[in-house]
Design a binder for these strands. Structure first.
Lengths: 210, 210
DNA sequence: GTCTATAACGTGATAGAC
DNA sequence: GTCTATCACGTTATAGAC
């Protein structure tokens, strides 16, 4: 039924509209600060429909949370486990991919970190990616390079923190950065775009630092 | 009256106890998720005393928020505006000072970022430090080094984001890092301690990267 | 200053008409 | 499926006794 499919694309059904609205509001305000009324308003829907489709605020939140976590870490998992790319290429790919991803939805990193703090790290158990990072081809490539003397810092965790810090922190601290640098949203995005090329350069310099 | 002062030091008065408890709970859970009952319980005080001393949850929060922001950014302001230290020395001092500061109260960075998101960046207006970063001796030293060809990246904001990312992000993402690396709290702290020496090395390598 | 009791309000959720 | 009206509950804040 192509007619029905077309209709879904142009006019999402009620359930999808509410979920999309919930995603926006939860990402922006976090679980505790969002009111179910905020979500209904954002979706331009009646409040009762939220419970009709999703039973409760909590159930709706868990759904959004899992989708957000899944898409966010899946992207990294794909890059990290690709045996056909070099370590240096992986750095480029992660920087490029994540800065694009987060620029599209800048609230995601702070949302994830805040909610993990509130709910406890137990949610992370459900993500297959978490358990396999240290067994990824990325880490074995890293260790190999350490043995070959191409990298000074032996601990891949330090490397991981550095890369994520360089990529993710500017978004988490964006209000601060914008204020200090007197940047418009657009100017900020330009800086981030520049970082897509700069971060790999910086990371490679760090690898050989001593 | 040394007797009275001694008593204050060993047994803080009710007001101070409540404020200290509020600091702990607000830092851990954020404004929206903390209940005034949580604070009273943490302080082992009657709930009504909170309103007696601080009028409202919001007033108490603003007090905590301002103290936290003030102490956090003041430390950076001191280092950044010291004309007697070199750029490289400033990097060392900031890394050392902030990793110690945040290790003592690891919730602070995420607390600050989360609450700025909720309340809007307007709070930052009240902080003198925010307005003068770009006029600090740190930035003029940076620009000077760029002109002298010692630094490849001309924008001090990129440098600032990098330094803060390397220092602050691991704490914001600590549940993630601990999970991925299967680290205990103690092991995590050791990694952070290592970073006090490593970050200046990495930053210096980045400065010359191209 | 500190307590108990309670008021006033906001929020999540549901019943029941349409 | 969608709406209005309303309930049930938790939370902030205060009144008033001690």
């Amino acid at each position: 039924m192509p007619a029905k499919k077309l209709k879904q694309l142009s006019e999402p059904n009620t359930e999808a509209k509410i979920k999309a609205a919930a995603r926006i509001v939860f990402h922006k305000k976090g679980y505790a600060a969002t009111r179910t009324r905020d979500i209904a308003e954002e979706a331009k829907m009646n409040l009762a429909l939220l419970n009709y489709y999703f039973r409760s605020k909590e159930k709706l939140f868990e759904l959004v949370m899992m989708e957000t976590l899944g898409s966010f870490f899946m992207a990294m998992g794909m890059v990290f486990n690709d045996a056909s790319t070099s370590l240096e290429k992986k750095i480029e790919l992660v920087a490029e991919k994540y800065i694009d991803l987060i620029t599209a939805e800048p609230e995601i990193p702070l949302f994830i970190m805040s909610e993990i703090r509130s709910e406890g790290a137990a949610i992370l158990e459900k993500l297959p990616f978490m358990h396999m990072v240290m067994q990824s081809t990325f880490v074995s490539q890293y260790k190999h390079a350490v043995k070959a003397g191409k990298i000074t810092e032996p601990n891949p965790l330090q490397f991981l923190m550095n890369m994520l810090g360089l990529i993710v922190f500017p978004f988490i601290g964006s209000p601060l950065i914008k204020k200090v640098g007197k940047l418009s949203d657009r100017q900020f995005d330009i800086l981030m775009k520049e970082r897509k090329k700069l971060i790999p350069v910086w990371m490679k310099a760090m690898l050989k630092a001593k």
